[in-house]
Computed example of a mutant assay.
Amino acid sequence: MAALTQYVHREQRTVIPRQHSERITVDGHEHDVRLGVWVSNQMSRRELNEQQLAELGIDSA
Score class of each variant (00 low, 15 high):
Met1Val: 07
Met1Thr: 08
Ala2Tyr: 08
Ala2Cys: 05
Ala3Ser: 14
Leu4Cys: 02
Leu4Asp: 05
Thr5Gly: 07
Thr5Leu: 10
Gln6Asn: 10
Gln6Phe: 05
Gln6Pro: 01
Tyr7His: 14
His9Ala: 12
Arg10Gly: 03
Arg13Met: 12
Thr14Gly: 15
Thr14Cys: 14
Thr14Gln: 14
Val15Pro: 00
Pro17Asp: 14
Pro17Met: 05
Pro17Trp: 02
Gln19Pro: 03
His20Val: 10
His20Ile: 08
His20Gln: 09
Ser21Asn: 13
Ser21Tyr: 09
Ser21Ile: 01
Glu22Arg: 06
Glu22Thr: 11
Arg23Asn: 00
Arg23Ala: 05
Arg23His: 00
Arg23Glu: 07
Arg23Asp: 00
Ile24Ser: 09
Ile24Gly: 06
Ile24Arg: 07
Thr25Leu: 07
Thr25Gly: 01
Val26Lys: 11
Asp27Trp: 01
Gly28Phe: 08
Gly28Arg: 06
Gly28Met: 10
His29Thr: 10
His29Leu: 11
Glu30Leu: 02
Glu30Ile: 04
Asp32Val: 00
Asp32Thr: 04
Val33Glu: 07
Arg34Gln: 12
Arg34Pro: 06
Leu35Asn: 02
Gly36Asn: 09
Val37Gly: 01
Val37Cys: 03
Val37Lys: 07
Val39Leu: 15
Ser40Asn: 13
Ser40Gln: 13
Asn41Gln: 15
Asn41Pro: 01
Asn41Arg: 15
Asn41His: 08
Met43Glu: 13
Met43Ala: 13
Arg46Leu: 15
Arg46Gly: 14
Glu47Ile: 00
Glu47Gln: 05
Glu47Ala: 03
Glu47Val: 02
Asn49Cys: 14
Asn49Trp: 09
Gln51Thr: 11
Gln51His: 13
Gln52Gly: 01
Leu53Ser: 01
Leu53Phe: 03
Leu53Asn: 00
Leu53Thr: 03
Glu55Leu: 11
Glu55Gly: 07
Glu55Arg: 10
Glu55His: 04
Gly57Arg: 00
Gly57Ala: 05
Asp59Trp: 04
